[in-house]
Amino acid sequence: MAEDGFREFVQLRYGELLRTAYLLTGSTHAAEDLVQSALLKAYRRWDLVDDPMAYLRRALVNQRTSVWRRIGSRELLTGVLPERGEQTGAPRTRSGTSCSPHWRSCRCACGRCWCCGTGKTCPKRTPPR
């Protein structure tokens, strides 16, 4: 009996669920997968569901949120690399001011100073001659 009601519901409301899932995913293939997994979860509890459309919409949103959390934010892959800007002049500090005029004279490559990249003054910096 419950199986007949579920089958009838899916035949009537599949299009609406698919539209909702498409709005959540942005892809028809991902939307179909999302609807199928939500329907599978709803089928297991079909006898306990009072409002099936609300239950399935909530299942779609919850499942899509879980996917977003699981995959996190991924980088967008493109075929073309962006142009790199050239750095001219003295490097800048975090506050936006220029580093000391002696920044070019540092030859330590310690990785701990402004001239080497991390923001501290260089203990080995020598003034220009």
Rank of each mutant, 00 (worst) to 15 (best):
S66M: 04
N62C: 12
T78N: 03
E16D: 15
L76F: 02
G79S: 13
E3P: 01
T20Q: 11
L48E: 09
E8H: 11
G85C: 10
Y14V: 05
R7P: 02
C110T: 08
G89C: 03
C106L: 11
Q63F: 02
K120Q: 13
S95G: 09
G119C: 14
Y43C: 02
G26L: 14
R13W: 04
N62Y: 08
Y22F: 15
W68N: 10
G85D: 10
A2D: 08
L17H: 04
F9Q: 00
P127D: 06
A30S: 07
S105Q: 11
A109Y: 10
A38M: 09
E32T: 07
C113A: 08
D4E: 12
V10I: 12
C115P: 08
L18W: 12
R57D: 09
A109K: 15
H29W: 05
G15N: 04
W68Q: 09
S37F: 00
F9T: 01
F6M: 15
G79A: 12
S27H: 14
N62W: 10
L34V: 03
L18P: 01
P82V: 06
Y22P: 00
S73M: 13
Q63P: 01
F9W: 01
G111T: 07
C106P: 03
Q11T: 11
M1L: 07
L23E: 13
L17C: 10
G72E: 08
D47P: 02
R13P: 00
P52W: 03
S73I: 14
Y22G: 10
T65S: 07
P91Y: 02
G15L: 04
R74A: 14
C99K: 00
C122R: 14
M53H: 05
T25F: 13
T121G: 08
L18V: 06
L39D: 01
R74P: 05
A31I: 10
P128Y: 12
G119W: 13
M1N: 04
W114S: 04
G72V: 07
T25Q: 11
R92C: 02
W68S: 14
S37L: 00
Y14I: 03
C122F: 15
S95T: 14
Y55C: 07
Y55V: 00
T97D: 02
A38S: 15
Q11P: 00
V10Q: 09
S100W: 04
H102F: 14
L56C: 14
R13Y: 12
L18R: 04
P127E: 10
R57K: 06
